[in-house]
Design a protein around this nucleic acid. Structure first.
Lengths: 359, 359
DNA sequence: TTGTAGGCGTTATCAA
DNA sequence: TTGATAACGCCTACAA
């Protein structure tokens, strides 16, 4: 719907470049240049065009531009199926950091959900192969593949967050979970703890493997073997942390020789576990020290405040986005395949010398 | 970059409709029809075209289609500046529900962040006026306006979530906060409570006003006036719930006549408040009953488990999205301006008869 | 410095 | 039922 000359500037959304050109008395190509390359046009004309555009409330049509230049300005973030956990804010935190960085660089952020079903994988591939998106961030998941299309072959830059995919040439921005647990383990060992209870995430999960390995490394340093660790959990995904923690408490209660230190792979697990064992009569940290993962803000207000290993999601999100954009814009930069951002162990009152071990 | 006939189907992302047409031995217009209107083309040709498309890994170019048909298939959700809170999962929950519904209906979801600065408002308006998005959901915020453009005049359907904007003709999917607090208030009154402590959200905030009004209504029913309520908080936004709760605990400690029941306008406030007053020596619920807002899952694992009013974010998100899509596709349907989805009061052990009031 | 002309990949109209 | 053709709105050689 073309606008007549005297139509109000605020009506409808349909001022075209041609309208601006007409009002400014120039050709559309001049308008295009004035808006994109202000330097390469006479200042007076530029001002006249700017005024005309302003008056008409002109906004360039994105589809036309994308079609013409052959690329979009949309970045997609592929998130795991479930976005909400019990207490952790990792998804909103990463979204916030990513979105802020995306916008600051003149791009837009599209959400894609990666469930394990074919339709959602197909959907993501359509976005990539249909040119809707120019780059992709993927959070802690494998790349989608359907039939003869794979995201890896879509010809767009991809950056992985949290999950190390550098072995398949996908640049990965990750944390050092293993090192972080190792340090937490060392602190617990230094406090005298010798028997550990480990509440696992989903079996085979990358994060779970890394975290468990970190704990074992700490034990090895102290000359202890895996036999000093009792494992629980492993049946659920991280989304069911509370349930896992409750089940772990049941498991714990049945043990003959009670461990004195607990490492939980998510704050949700630690929170429900602690709540339940306290009801059963154990005291934290007198009878039991607890450390967990994610750095959920609420841990500070638990009773006692929970020690936790904070994942630096804001830094991860920002770094990953900048990395992706660098790849999109100049494919010769940022060739490294791994960037490690340290996690932070936050020690709070949930860990201490055990009452039975006290000298 | 055109593909040669014998190029591998999985390489690059550039099979065009013309390539499919050539391989199937038909015209591009037939391919277009076969893909969009399978019914209006000979079954044999359709199958041949489908096979060719499959073999080439053909995906239609979204920009070209959008340009041609004059509309995009992207829905934007405008979120408040900060996406993460202390414990509540309302943003991820609503995102999850919205995204699921958006995808199920063949659309895509774009994130837009509404900070209070001009650049982010301008950015949102560009998305709307530039035809990038076809409809908008807005979560608990006012519509952006910059210079001579306003989202309300962008000519695209808008649906508000949580914030009632029906007075400006924006359809709103909201909860009945007022009614929910009123019911919680009634329960507290029935338990014998007469003096209330109200921890407010940001002053002038819609939700805060509604919630406070609900509490007053319950009091009025019981013949009590506003003088039975002591207010705290009000200086921070909901994003600083923990800080607000801590400050409220300080305020509480200074009161001469102690209220026996607390209504907090977010779980974060309640959690930090409870943690602090417990450290100061008060017992919950014996000395103090607490009710809060948002239904954060972690409330169940507090000590004692916190009573909270759950916002039905999944239902809200799904309803709002379906409502928006109905408006986008057939503008004559769904003319109502308000849909109210009930909140749910979850009673847990944080409320009880007060020890001093016990008979 | 500015204008003319052509095409990005798709869909829709019209004829065949 | 199918094919040729003309847009959609913008950007960018190239020419003036």
């Amino acid at each position: 719907m073309k606008k007549t000359e005297d139509s109000l500037s605020t009506e409808g959304s349909s001022a075209l470049m041609a309208d601006v050109a007409r009002l400014a008395g120039v050709a559309t190509s001049t308008v295009s240049r004035a808006l994109a390359n202000p330097g390469r046009v006479n200042e007076k004309t530029r001002a006249r065009i700017a005024a005309a555009a302003e008056q008409l409330g002109y906004t360039p049509n994105a589809a036309a531009r994308n079609l013409r230049v052959g690329k979009s300005n949309v970045i997609m973030i592929i998130l795991p199926g479930s976005l909400h956990y019990g207490a952790s804010q990792i998804i909103p935190q990463v979204l916030e950091a990513v979105n802020r960085t995306v916008i600051r660089n003149g791009y837009n952020l599209m959400i894609a959900n990666l469930d394990r079903d074919e339709s959602s994988e197909r959907h993501i591939l359509d976005l990539a192969f249909g040119g809707t998106v120019r780059g992709a961030l993927i959070l802690s998941s494998q790349l989608p593949v359907v039939a003869n299309r794979s995201l890896a072959e879509a010809g767009l830059p991809i950056v992985s967050l949290l999950l190390d995919m550098s072995d398949t040439s996908v640049p990965s921005i990750i944390t050092n979970d293993r090192q972080a647990v190792k340090e937490a383990g060392r602190e617990l060992l230094a406090l005298g703890h010798r028997r550990f209870f480990y509440i696992a995430g989903p079996t085979g999960n990358y994060h779970d493997i890394e975290r468990y390995a970190g704990l074992l490394e700490a034990l090895q340093e102290a000359g202890l073997s895996e036999r000093h660790v009792t494992r629980s959990g492993g049946q659920f995904t991280f989304q069911f942390g509370f349930e896992t923690g409750l089940q772990a408490a049941e498991d714990f209660a049945k043990l003959d020789e009670k461990p004195t230190a607990v490492v939980a792979t998510s704050d949700d697990m630690a929170i429900s576990f602690m709540s339940k064992v306290q009801k059963m009569g154990w005291r934290v940290p007198e009878d039991l020290s607890i450390v967990s993962f994610d750095g959920s803000p609420v841990c500070e207000y638990c009773a006692p405040p929970l020690s936790t290993i904070e994942q630096p999601m804001e830094a991860l999100g920002e770094t990953a986005t900048e990395f992706l954009i660098a790849r999109m814009e100049k494919s010769d930069e940022r060739r490294e395949l791994r960037v490690v951002i340290p996690s932070r162990f936050i020690r709070r009152d949930s860990i201490a010398v055990n009452s039975k071990l006290a000298t």
